[in-house]
């Protein structure tokens, strides 16, 4: 009888979306109609299975740390123009919800540009970075990967990257592609660490990016380190200092640095 009216209401009933009047209507019908009751039971059973068996993926603690590092490295509000100062929730009409479009486009490009301008124009990113080479390295890594200015010279060819860096520094860093070992060279970048211009080699590892800061002077620091959700590996050999930063695991990063060192010292 009332099945036609009831069936469209079963899912909203299960989802708690009905007002009292319609809820009672559905409940009454379910008591007296086996097919509708079965449909209801199926839906409840499915929900139960989803809630108990489909995993709710937990974010790694390192993600929260990284997000905080990103937030700390982003300039405070007011330093950049906002497209819309006070956006409201859209109402449910189609026209109004277009308001949300600005979140979809433009926002991130503008923000990355802001981060870069801030980096270029400001010597001190935060108090920690100014005192600590590791924090500076991590901050540079965050800014480079987020700002999409990952490399100044993009090349997997060490014979391109090395001269490019040498021309801009007072030293000529060892550069080796480790693609065969799973770490392809993506390019090079110039950075400033501890008040000194350094060569940064950028490598890929699966979906991770690894920054390696290479210079002849020594950094005084432990061989591996974890900061704000990023891993840092440090090695000194053959007169060079390697400082690698990535969100890849410490094992991967340490193994990578070892291979880098043996490639550089093999000659």
């Amino acid at each position: 009888m009332k099945c036609d009216q009831t069936q469209p209401l079963i899912a909203p009933y299960v989802d708690g979306e009905l007002d009292t009047l319609r809820r009672r209507f559905v409940e009454k019908h379910l008591k007296n109609c086996a097919p509708c009751a079965e449909q209801h039971a199926d839906l409840v059973a499915l929900r139960q299975r989803i809630r108990t068996e489909v995993p709710y993926f937990a974010a790694a603690p390192a993600l929260a740390e990284r997000v905080r590092a990103i937030v700390a490295a982003t300039p405070p509000a007011g330093s950049s123009g906002r497209p819309h100062k006070r956006e409201r929730w859209p109402r449910l009409s189609v026209g109004v919800s277009r308001h949300w479009q600005w979140l979809a486009s433009g926002a991130v490009g503008g923000c990355a540009a802001t981060v870069l301008a801030f980096v270029a124009g400001t010597a001190v990113l935060d108090w920690q970075a100014s005192q600590n080479v590791v924090a500076q390295a991590v901050t540079r890594h965050v800014q480079a990967t987020l700002g999409h200015r990952l490399v100044d010279v993009a090349s997997s060819d060490q014979h391109t990257v090395k001269p490019w860096l040498s021309a801009r520094l007072d030293y000529s860093p060892p550069v080796h592609d480790l693609a065969a070992e799973g770490f392809p060279l993506l390019g090079g970048r110039l950075d400033t660490l501890g008040g000194r211009k350094v060569a940064t080699l950028v490598y890929g590892y699966r979906k991770h990016t690894i920054d390696v800061f290479v210079q002849p002077d020594s950094f005084d620091m432990p061989s591996s380190h974890e900061l704000r959700g990023f891993n840092v590996a440090h090695r000194r050999a053959a007169g060079w200092d390697w400082l690698a930063v990535s969100d890849a695991s410490p094992d991967v990063l340490n193994g990578f640095v070892s291979q880098l060192v043996s490639a550089a010292t093999a000659k």
């Binding site: 974010a59 409201r88 926002a107 991130v108």
Partner: peptide, 18 residues
């Protein structure tokens, strides 16, 4: 997913005052 969340956080920070 981590990359997406990090990107979302940058956007959220920009508009968090609203």
């Amino acid at each position: 997913a981590e990359d997406i969340v990090q990107d979302a956080c940058i956007r959220a920070l920009k508009y968090v005052d609203s």
